[in-house]
Design a protein around this nucleic acid. Sequence first.
DNA 1: TCTGGGGTCCTGTTCCGC
DNA 2: TCTGGCGGAACAGGACCC
Length: 351
Amino acid sequence: MAPIAHLDIDAFYASVELLRRPELRGLPVIVSGSGPRAVVTTASYEARRFGVGSAMPTSRARRLCPDAVLVAPDFAAYGAASKEVMALVREAVDRVEVVGMDEAYLDLAELVAPRAAMRRLVNAIREKTGLECSIGIGPNRLVAKVASDAEKPRGFVCLTREQACARFAGHSPGLVPGIGPKTVERLEEMGITTLRALASVPVQALVARFGANHGPDLQRRARFEASARLTTSRVAVSESRETTFDYDISDSAQLEEILGDLAGQLCERLAKQDRRGRNVAIKVRLSDFTTVTRARMIPLPTNDAQVVTQVARELLREYAPARPVRLLGVRVASFQTAPADPDADQLALPL
DNA sequence: TCTGGGGTCCTGTTCCGC
DNA sequence: TCTGGCGGAACAGGACCC
């Protein structure tokens, strides 16, 4: 078996903030925006003890932990820190799949002593960047990922597939990536509340409930069966800009103006990358949180802000929101095919 | 308690051409 | 000529992830 490691930087954004502001060490720190509708992006482990967690409304986090220090996110700083860490990772291993700013999968197949190499990598990251991370090692991405989560922070867990099955048998299926809250709820309705139960239920029951693909996939995940291969390069298939308003907006002229701003930002970025798409879409979230998307294919690929703005405004007019709007977004997709990427060895389409 | 922003992938439906 | 089946593309929505 070719081992895979999953590396995850502990409380990444909060940890970067603590490096810059050592006086905050030991205090509960919450990285979050400041508006009335902000949510927590990361909480330090001190804040987590109060029940504060990612994606929680900041208003609620403040109630749970009134003494927490709120810090506004600084994505440029996190990007720089992430680059430093990933450079060290690439020094240690040839094949790396970076997932977001704070995570990566590492192909350990070429290493003679993979565990020792990962220990050295963790130490190098700590010495050179001041950041701590957790490592999981397993025969595939699923085992590696769950293992890296199991003993955070500063975890170092190495498991075979069978050990993973045994160790997490009594846990909720939601422990496994790809099984979210909605699926957990539906499984509970079937009386399935543990990974053990999900792994052993007759697959037909899952097919009946979740369909011919998703059903068997859930069971494979519960058995920690997954691909051991990494995707070492990816090309984005869409790009978008969206914003949630502090207060809902009903005025259509104002909404159309905002759409123009978002399209402008998005197209500026697309132009810098010399990317053009044929699919223009809007996203509208209403005051009752219902979310609607509307999309249209246009004849020629574009990154022209005027074109994108016009299509987006037409889509908004046709939809004519029946309630005040809390979020508005613009997306461009169906990009012109990019030049062939020789490193894209995992991207061949199934026939 | 009141839910961000940026993405990916999957599924079901509808439409259209053959 | 009419009809049905089929497959692909487009579209909408939803679940999920960081």
